[in-house]
Design a protein around this nucleic acid. Sequence first.
DNA 1: AATATTAATCGTATATTTGCGATGAACTAT
DNA 2: ATAGTTCATCGCAAATATACGATTAATATT
Lengths: 97, 97
Amino acid sequence: MKKPELNNKDHVKLARFAKALSHPTRLFILKFLSCCESCYTGNIVNELPIAQSSVSQHLKELKEAGLIDGTIETPKVYYCINKKNWELAKKMFAKFF
Amino acid sequence: MKKPELNNKDHVKLARFAKALSHPTRLFILKFLSCCESCYTGNIVNELPIAQSSVSQHLKELKEAGLIDGTIETPKVYYCINKKNWELAKKMFAKFF
DNA sequence: AATATTAATCGTATATTTGCGATGAACTAT
DNA sequence: ATAGTTCATCGCAAATATACGATTAATATT
C-alpha cells in the first residue's frame, strides 16, 4: 500500500464530513431528514430539547458541509439531504475503512 | 422508517468515532498505521510537520476513541489499529448512510 | 399600517480543540 | 553516576464549538 500524504485533498474533505457528523444532534437531524416528509426547521426544533437558535446553528453547519440543502418557502425553510454529497460521503467513508 | 431518537446510543458512539476522524492529521495517522510496518510514535512524528507533543495529543484522542492501541516497548511506543473497533466504526458508518 | 409567523443572525458565556515549548518519566548505554 | 532516547504530560495561547436569549428580516394576514 502506498504511503499516505498529509493534507491529502480527500483527507481534508473527509475530515470535513466527519466533523459535520461529530455531534449527536446533527446525526439526529440527518436521520430525521432522511425519513420524514415534513422537513421544515420548525419540525426539527419540535423534536429537539434545545433552543431554535441552536438548531439553526447545527443546520448551518450541515449545510456548509454540503450534506443538506435549504429551500426558502417563506416564512418557512424546507431542508433536505443533499443526495449527491450524501453519496459522496458514503463512498469516502467506505473507501477509508 | 421509524423516527430517530435523540441521544440514541448509536448516535453518541458514532459521533465519537466521527469526531476522531474529523481532523486531517488524524486521518493521516490512521492511514499510516494501516499501511506501515514501523508504527512507533517517532515514525509518525517524522512524517508530520507538527511538534511531537501535538502528534502525541492526536494519538491520545485516537486511542481514547478506541480506534488505535498503544503498546509500550520502552523507550518506544508501538501503535496499531484496533481492528475490532475499526470494523465496528466501519459498520456503523455504513449503516448510517 | 399593525400584527403574527418563521427562521437566521447577533452578542455573550463557557467549554473544547489545537498547537507549541518545556518538563518529566522510564528506561538504555556509556 | 551521567548522558541520551523516546514519548507523555503540563501550562499556556489562540481558535473553534456549543448553547442561549434577544433581535432582525422577510413575508403573510388582518
